[in-house]
Design a protein around this nucleic acid. Structure first.
Length: 570
RNA sequence: GUAGCUGUAGCUCAACUGGAUAGAGUACUUGGCUACGAACCAAGAGGUUGCAGGUUCAAGUCCUGUCAGCUACACCA
């Protein structure tokens, strides 16, 4: 379909003696398909040519030969509406899909280029709660989307495994470690210890001093402290990995903040050598044009900040990965931090790299009253509890329906987790979300299970009809038999898939794919209810089955890009 | 206080980046399982796009102002 749009644009451009891309930008798709497949509004030309838009459209209609890809051109109130030659287009699209299968969705736009994506990044010794889900799920989707268009992607879990809070935890563990069974429930114990120690520190100044001392020892690499820290880190990570496994998310690197401990002095030196560091209230900062507040590099006690660590990470990623893009997926709370950090980074990794660092912000998960959810207090569910809730619900529905008996646990995981991920990726990422378990666990309407259900149906029809795409020869399938409105709608939707993926990548917006896959699924459902696929006529049946196969393929691949797996029955 | 984001149907959200009659899901009402799976489909009802101006042939979309909510504003990360 895209090439037809270009064809139209170039013919109009030729006639008007204008730039093709300018015309191409103006060509749109009418909301109502009965008005055509493409439309060119002539209003802008009206002033230029000093002619009524309708007259311009009529002239173009009669004077330009749009070729045989266009079957009809209409003039409707200043619009030039184009109807494509369905039979020809449909044959081209279907042949393309059936020949290429998975490759139909892929491109090599990013061939030979590296992209770093920094996502999830929980803080060690703190619970993995609902707020971490979005970064994990959006980052993971971007990872797969960019992979699909040919980039080499590096998924980085920039663990929050460093900072003064570890001084406190270590101090508390030294005092009461024996009271806790760390192995059994590490994060809960560590949080308890942290809370208990910080409360003691409020009353007893010496505890604070001890904590600072511990952190200093950690920075310097003292053995006893390092051993404890390592233990905390490993046990926490184990717990996070359990959740990542449920979500089916993987990372290429777990290099967290601690990894850059010995790499920050270089950053400080570069800034100092360039005379950018300024002393301010005892701290060392870099003033930035256009910002009220300078960017702090060293605190007044000489220790580094998280910005310093992010700068060290940027330098490392430039050297290690030579990134074409470096993406940070965090909530919009950190917008200021990243824009400052990117500014300073220009001086460290060079403008050409700094320009390719992007912050991908997303809205927050808020509590009932629309207020921020605090990590304190056990009233909030952990992510693992929510995921298990979804899995349990899926399981009981599966049992009730009785369609799938073997492997029910894995099917329930795919469906339950699919519902949660799909729900999180459905809306524009910038929107805040008020935490609502019932919404997350919805399985009807525009949800993950709905789309999965449509895939399962395609699968089950193909199985029933004993249809194997590998055994088919494209030449033997007569796509011209696909002329029902519902069939044409589906095929045209399928032909959009590459543009959809491209704009999701360009805008760092997985929801574009989520909404598209709802579209496809719902078009298929309408078709399925209106027409019989397993028909008497073998030729018609084969044409329809290849369409059903194509729908299944698109759904499965798109869900895959969102990090959602497709069960083959449910 | 300054800056950023958000505001569209009862609720949750779309709207191809300025285009034609603002669309879905959900909830509600009604109809459809003896041909491929009802986690489904079809139909109905539901709107002053927060408010007020402005630009334009054309504004949910751009500009100005204003109201409401959220977030950030250096020694937490």
């Amino acid at each position: 379909m895209q090439h037809i749009k270009k064809e139209i644009a170039s013919k109009i451009a030729e006639k008007l003696n204008k730039n093709v891309n300018e015309i191409l930008d103006n060509i749109e798709v009418p909301k109502d398909s009965s008005m055509g497949d493409f439309a060119y509004p002539c209003f802008k030309l009206s002033k230029e040519l000093r002619m009524a838009p309708i007259k311009i459209a009529e002239d173009m209609k009669s004077e330009i030969d749009f070729g045989d890809n266009i079957s009809k051109v209409d003039v409707v109130s200043g619009y030039l509406n184009f109807f494509v030659n369905n039979e020809k287009v449909i044959n081209n699209i279907m042949t393309d899909v059936i020949l290429n299968k998975e490759k139909y969705l892929k491109s090599n736009e990013g061939k030979g280029k590296n992209i770093c994506i920094d996502y999830s990044s929980p803080n060690i010794a703190k619970p993995f709660h609902i707020g971490h889900l979005r970064s994990t799920v959006i980052g993971n989707a971007l990872y797969k989307i960019y992979k699909n268009i040919g980039y080499n992607v590096i998924g980085i879990n920039h663990l929050g495994d460093f900072g003064t809070q570890f001084g406190l935890v270590i101090e508390g563990y030294k005092r009461w470690g024996k009271e806790y069974n760390l192995e059994e429930n590490p994060i809960k114990c560590l949080v308890d210890i942290y809370v208990r120690t910080s409360e003691l520190a409020k009353e007893d100044e010496s505890v604070k001093d001890k904590a600072r001392e511990n952190f200093k020892k950690l920075e310097e690499g003292e053995k006893e402290v390092i051993t404890l820290w390592n233990k905390f880190r490993e046990l926490s990570l184990e717990e996070y990995k359990r959740i990542y496994k449920i979500l089916d998310v993987e990372f290429d690197s777990y290099n967290g903040e601690a990894f850059y401990n010995d790499k920050m002095s270089e950053v400080v030196n570069i800034l100092r050598d360039k005379n950018l560091l300024v002393e301010s209230q005892g701290a060392m900062v870099v003033p930035i044009k256009g910002y009220d507040i300078p960017c702090m590099i060293l605190k007044s006690n000489g220790s580094t900040t998280y910005t310093t660590r992010d700068l060290a990470a940027a330098l490392y990623r430039k050297r290690e990965y030579n990134f074409a893009k470096s993406i940070y997926v965090t909530s919009y709370e950190q917008s200021l931090h990243f824009s400052q950090m990117f500014e300073v980074a220009k001086n460290i990794i060079g403008e050409e790299y700094a320009e390719n660092m992007v912050h991908v912000p997303f809205g927050m998960v808020l509590g009932k009253g629309g207020k921020k959810i605090s990590t304190r207090g056990g009233a909030n569910l952990t992510l693992e509890e929510i995921l298990n809730e979804a899995i349990d619900k899926a399981k009981s529905i599966l049992e009730e329906k009785g369609n799938a008996k073997d492997n029910i646990q894995e099917l329930a995981r795919q469906i339950g987790v699919g519902a949660i991920i799909f729900n999180d990726l459905k809306n524009n990422r910038i929107k805040d979300e008020i935490f609502n378990l019932d919404d997350m666990l919805k399985f009807d309407g525009e949800t993950g299970p709905y789309v999965q259900y449509m895939y399962v149906r395609t699968n089950s029809i193909l199985k029933k009809a004993n249809f194997n795409i590998e055994e088919m020869k494209v030449e033997d399938i007569d796509f011209s038999l696909l002329k029902e409105k519902e069939e044409i709608d589906i095929i045209k939707a399928i032909s959009r898939v590459k543009e959809v993926i491209k704009s999701a990548a360009d805008q760092y917006e997985p929801s574009i794919i989520t909404r598209y896959v709802i579209d496809i699924a719902s078009l298929f459902s309408t078709y399925y209810n209106a027409h019989h696929i397993i028909a008497q006529d073998k030729k018609l049946m084969n044409a329809r089955l290849s369409l059903v196969y194509s729908v299944g393929l698109i759904i499965k691949e798109c869900l895959g890009m969102l990090g959602i797996s497709c069960p083959d029955k449910m």
